[in-house]
Amino acid sequence: MTGFAVDRTGPALVVGGPAPDPRLTGLVEGRGALLLWNLAAPQPHPAAIVWDPALATEWLWEVYGPDTAAAVLDGPDTVATAWESPVLDAARDLALLRWAEAWWPASYAAAVPALPRALLLAETTWCTARVEHLLEDEEAVERALSRVDLGALAPLRSNPGVDTEIADLSERLGDLAESYGVVLRAEAPARREDWALAAGGPAPGDLTVSGGTVAVDARFTPRGLVDAESDAAWTLVQRSGAWLLTLTVPAAPDAADAVLTARFAGLDVPLRLDANGAFTGETEAPLDVVTRLAAETRVLVHAPWFAPVPPEPGPDDPQWRAAALAFARARLASPDATLTERAARS
């Protein structure tokens, strides 16, 4: 049984209190209402912000059951439901998969495997199709199908335990694409060697002056690139008479290359993924940097195409990361894990 408070005082009807931290929220955008699953305190039924009750009334019963949906729209200030339905399951899976695409905390250090992205996009599409009748975006299925790549899905089919399900999903998506007039991509998957660069870090012949490790603050990069749970290593070396600061930031499992910048000890260091699976880079360092290095406790990694970095960024909030890790681990162990999650753990 999930219980909710209903607040009818504002312009929108709020079911289940203030919206949770967006970094820990699974979303489904329904017609006239936003469904929100707070992943810090997982429940089978979502909270909701109903901004157009007339539209939402058509389908809200699919999520809460007819009685509770009626009570949400026009009833007491608390409601409860134990409604179960395949549509509710599909909506929740969709919310979780979309969250995972954005926030899944893949990390070697925390032993959270990466989710197979091609499968995640494929399963997201199927969940979208299962709830397309209540979604606000009239082209949600087409949009999702346009991101599916059957070619990238193919190698996953050698994964025993999920192989037949993936084959079945591919076939269903083929039919779906035909009904929506979308031509599915089927590109040959890129191999890691195709883009890996040479190993970074100190080079042979460098004279290491000092070095250390610091925590990684990856708030300003998209998830899935750097391993936010690992420590980064820095070294100050002398090469050909110049002082160089090198940085090695461990990449997340299955990370792709990207142009990142690390801010450390007042310096901006450009980072690229190297052959050893770390984002590495170096920059010339002024002499006075030596005095600052020892005091540094974190390296701030950011992607200039992803987020602006304030001049004086406050400390990262470790709570949401811990909650995300706990949730991801629980999902991997859950009996109702999605196909994507099961493929990741096997």
């Binding site: 979303l27 695409e101 195409w305 992803f306």
Partner: peptide, 9 residues
């Protein structure tokens, strides 16, 4: 929540 880039980046 969808993890899209911040337009102010």
């Amino acid at each position: 929540a969808l993890g899209l880039p911040d337009p102010e980046a």
